[in-house]
Design a protein around this nucleic acid. Structure first.
Lengths: 254, 254
DNA sequence: CCAGCTTAGTGTTACTTTTACACTTAATAA
DNA sequence: TTATTAAGTGTAAAAGTAACACTAAGCTGG
């Protein structure tokens, strides 16, 4: 990931062939959301709204810019967030991936050749919605529950779906969820996280037995305060312990 | 994957910005190999050999060509193979990924601008070495044991390593190995496959117990013939049974 | 202050999977 | 007929999975 200065000031030339699209998932304990950008096009003469739809947060990359850095920059431009890990999950390059009328009109209106192919590298990230300030440079960006997204511009619906598959696969293998929780969290919060992202219900007792085997989930002598029910014990994720005890997953399905 | 005609005849223009690199793994029951191309450069005047190294099988893609189709075409051009499944695993786009002297000289000698960045989409495939004929259009392509590859042109060493990680991850989740075996195979062959690709030793009895649980591995009333030891029972992989009984992997590591 | 609300927290049993480990069997070759 | 080679087999202990229902602790409102 590039430094903040590189992210903010970029001297290169935007490259017409490459873009990155970032699928920014936002977790909020009740559902999984995705960051979408309003795309409104109005007729220049009449002022009439031609269409108003949604896209993922993507953009072209600079000619001398690393792919990962470009993804970070785009995320920064849209949200002001920095030092967020973005995972590259797939590259989309069908020659006809931009073929709908709205998309072609949009590109033309923005000074791009709608017939020029664009290969886009997909990244995803997973954030806690409440850590993101969406009042940023007046961009028209907002969280939408993933379950409610039915259509997006370009091939972004397909990109979103692939990102969700990649996110879930990754969550099943790596403890990527702790970034989303407060430093001290309860087991119910952790369980909720898995349920929301994986879209399943988990048994509380079995979940806790599993947690008990993970030595890097350290119980504290500290409880929630100010909740209107029995306060839960707080836990922390010990990254060092995790790294040391991480064993190769060699459990294979033939 | 495109049809064979599309693979052979392509009318478009090669795009200078994009390439695909195919990491073709070859399994031969004794080791895991990778298909590499000799890259020899000689001084035009003196005829002296300037360098002689190895690259992955990659090439630029056509402007109107799908990424997956481009990977298939490159594989076809180099090996004559068709209808081989190629899995996209990662895209490499560091602006300085081509910076070594040999690589720059090579590009210049081949009429390309060494300062122009090239983003390459990585694909891998897994074949049985004995199914591949390397006498194809006189290309200088050959199998090299993965364990013996120490250096490659461009950033191909890094691409190879990432491909191997992706291959192993995939083999642990999906039964991708059966393409490499004869239609009827023995359990020892299957075990050997896993050992060679994953680079581990597996216990014979435990392996067989695991196989016994996989209902889509169907034992036949048929044995090996002509071997100088106790003949092994033959098995087939029943893809239909696999597809029907495939269950969601929801076994997560918190 | 106590009754009610809400979420935290806990244990057992049956079953399945994993791990570690060594000898017998069946074919060909010499 | 014997040697060589790889195939094939069982068990016990430990760990993990799955299903399942009640009590505990704090706050709230009357």
């Amino acid at each position: 990931m590039s430094s903040s200065i590189e992210q903010k000031v970029h001297a290169g030339v935007l490259n017409d062939y490459f873009s990155v699209d970032c699928v920014i998932f936002g977790f909020d304990f009740s559902q999984l959301n995705v960051l979408l950008v309003d795309r409104v096009m109005t007729d220049e003469l009449t002022g009439k709204e031609l269409f108003n739809d949604l896209t993922l947060t993507g953009n072209h990359i600079y000619d001398d810019e690393d792919l990962d850095a470009a993804a970070s920059r785009v995320l920064f431009d849209l949200t002001g967030l920095q030092n967020i890990y973005l995972e590259q999950f797939k590259t989309f390059g069908a020659p006809d991936r931009i073929n709908r009328e709205n998309d072609r009109a949009w590109l033309a209106a923005n000074g791009r050749d709608p017939d020029k192919r664009i290969v886009t590298v997909g990244y995803y990230s997973l954030l806690a919605t409440d850590k993101v300030t969406l009042e940023w440079k007046g961009r028209n960006v907002r969280w939408t529950p993933v379950a409610e997204v039915t259509d997006l511009a370009f091939d972004h619906m397909a990109i979103l779906q692939e990102a969700l598959v990649a996110l879930r696969k990754n969550l099943l293998r790596e403890p990527i969820g702790f970034e989303l929780l407060p430093e001290k969290f309860t087991l119910s919060q952790l369980q909720r996280l898995y349920e929301v992202i994986l879209g399943v219900a988990l048994d509380k007792r079995n979940f806790r037995k599993k947690v008990a085997r993970m030595k890097y989930l350290v119980p504290l002598e500290e409880k929630q305060m100010g909740v209107a029910h029995k306060p839960a014990r707080l836990y922390v994720f010990d990254r060092d312990l995790y790294e040391k005890n991480r064993k190769e997953l060699l459990d294979f399905a033939i």
